[in-house]
Write a protein that binds this DNA or RNA. Structure first.
Lengths: 343, 343
DNA sequence: CTGTTAGCGCTTTCAA
DNA sequence: TTGAAAGCGCTAACAG
């Protein structure tokens, strides 16, 4: 910057004023500065700028699994809201590991993002770290991360309600042997969708059969990772081989449901006549499956949008704000994989 | 930091040495420093650190469309390679707009990332900006972004070959009226997959019928945006209403192909007997479609991995390196949507 | 309208 | 093994 100042014959401060378009600078000086800036292909050092200004106009978003449409829609919504208020967005991926969770927090906060949105699953060491971040006065908002802190806003879809309604729907159709694919009963405490399933069964006095609840066991982390087509496929195979197989399946998410559908088709059974299947999320491809996939739609964009708004509110407020908690309703989407078409 | 130094009774430099684990510090002083660091919940300012060190140990990745499995697999591979060498990864999304492309470059470079991987589609102003970044000695690597610069490495799948083989496959099956969905002929220059299609037709002296090439016209940008299920669905509807409809379809990507499949099913025609369909990318769900989707698999992870390696090589080298160009082969994956099962 | 001063928080370099 | 000095590149605050 001082190079430019010298070349033009002004003080660095004047160059700064031109670049930031604030303060008064004469038309003449402005033009000369700008032309030298172009000539020298000058680009200002944002690090120094941020260090001085004590802000970066940037927010960070930590995602667990980027290959999940839920995460990506979230990211798009957050980005939109941030851009609208002139904030940049940096995204980090943690791949569902507590260690990488922390690495992501660390790298974002050490770059002094003005605030942080966290959309990874809760884990103890990560939660601990988040606390210390907040105590350093960096605003944090959590999406679907199930832990409580007085100064961290919380947004989530109502997975409990969604899981309940999905299961209720299957019960309404007359099913009594209903399987769950995507997690095991050990994960109950951390998985609202599974809780919703169990609640619905309980309400209708259907006995819970633990052989009907299947998924990958997370021995190492204790945290149920994201569930995939593969898990759905394998889980369904297992359930189909039971002496008294289920007649309906609630899958933890649509990918799992789709894997399960493939397993059912391979076995020669029909969907939904022999096995009804419902997923969760309503990914864009759900409607293109054959049969089209019944599912529970969660408001992905809305969650991202609200998170961004709450975060920016915290960033731009001086006072200590009270914790906000938003639990958004899910919507049951009934398609052919649970109800056969009447002609 | 000076707070800590004062509390412990040493110089800030000593604290710095403890935190960076370099230089000699007595066991005693180290322990006292670390305990005060914990006590005060101190977190060092990465901005100041980076400003002084002239590096951030961070690389940036700019993605066009995050909801595309191609992008996300890329991101995961890049992240893996970066993490392995102790670099952080910041991801920005540009949503396929030239303006936001530049905003992403700007925000990453102004935060002084040590290098940049760009995986968005080429556009003139963005290309211009990338040039100026390189001239500021920030290493840049491009993935699938079709523009040439002496100091920018280039990685891409061989879309030309892939498009050719997909079309060739349909021709081998006896098809002569083959449609393309996902772009219009105006985009030929920028879309290798479309070129591959045209080349294959030409080689077999099949006349090109422009009514068989359909997609959304990008009037505003001139850049063909990402093609979706919706475009596939609508494109297929259009092609099916032609007096002499195509008997086979090459879709620009799997999402487009899946949308097209839905349109075909709705019309009561059979896949592949009445209309054969092949896509591109081999997204994880392709194999779960009914019928399962034939496609062209591109090495997504490999592209990301190579890009990261080339970038880190540039970052860690002092000399001016020559441009590297890697074009990776695609693989034809034949499934039920083009070839009916023989029993 | 423009310039001067000071300092953001850290680390490199040199000295003890 | 530790410390002092200097400065990374920028801008807030004040002065003219």
């Amino acid at each position: 910057m001082s190079d430019i100042a010298t070349t033009v014959g002004v003080a660095p401060m004047t160059v700064s004023r031109v670049l930031n378009q604030n303060g008064y600078v004469s038309e003449d000086v402005r033009n000369r500065v700008l032309s030298v800036v172009k000539e020298l292909n000058y680009r200002r050092n944002g690090l120094a700028r941020s260090l001085k200004r004590q802000r970066t106009d940037t927010i960070g978003l930590v995602l667990g699994d980027i290959s999940n449409p839920y995460s990506t829609e979230l990211a798009r919504a957050v980005r939109e809201a941030a851009t609208a208020k002139n904030y940049n967005l940096f995204i980090c991926i943690s791949e569902h590991s507590a260690q990488e969770d922390i690495a992501a927090f660390e790298s974002l906060t050490s770059h002094s993002v003005d605030g942080l949105i966290v959309a990874t699953r809760a884990n103890d060491s990560g939660d601990e770290y988040l606390k210390s971040i907040v105590e350093n006065n960096v605003p944090v908002v959590a999406i679907g991360r199930d832990f409580y802190h007085e100064q961290i806003d919380y947004i989530s879809a109502d997975n409990l309600q969604g899981g309940f309604e999905a299961t209720q729907h299957l019960i309404d159709l007359g099913h009594r042997r209903i399987g769950f694919i995507g997690a095991t009963l050990e994960n109950e405490a951390k998985l609202k969708r599974l809780q919703g399933y169990l609640n619905a069964l309980e309400k209708h006095r259907i006995e819970i059969d633990e052989r009907l609840v299947t998924g990958r066991r997370e021995v190492r982390t204790g945290v149920p990772g994201y569930s995939t087509e593969k898990i759905g496929y394998e889980g369904m195979k297992r359930l189909l081989s039971l002496p008294n197989r289920p007649t309906a399946i609630f899958a933890r998410n649509d990918f799992t449901a789709i894997g399960a559908m493939t397993a059912v088709k391979e076995s020669g059974l029909r969907i939904p006549q022999d096995v009804a299947i419902i997923g969760f999320d309503d990914i864009p491809l759900a409607v293109h499956m054959s049969p089209s996939l019944s599912t529970v739609r969660q408001p992905m964009r809305l969650q991202g949008q609200i998170a961004a708004e709450l975060l920016l509110r915290r960033i731009e407020s001086d006072e200590d704000l009270l914790r906000e908690e938003k639990i958004l309703n899910c919507e049951l989407i009934i398609r052919e994989s649970t109800v056969s078409l009447k002609i």
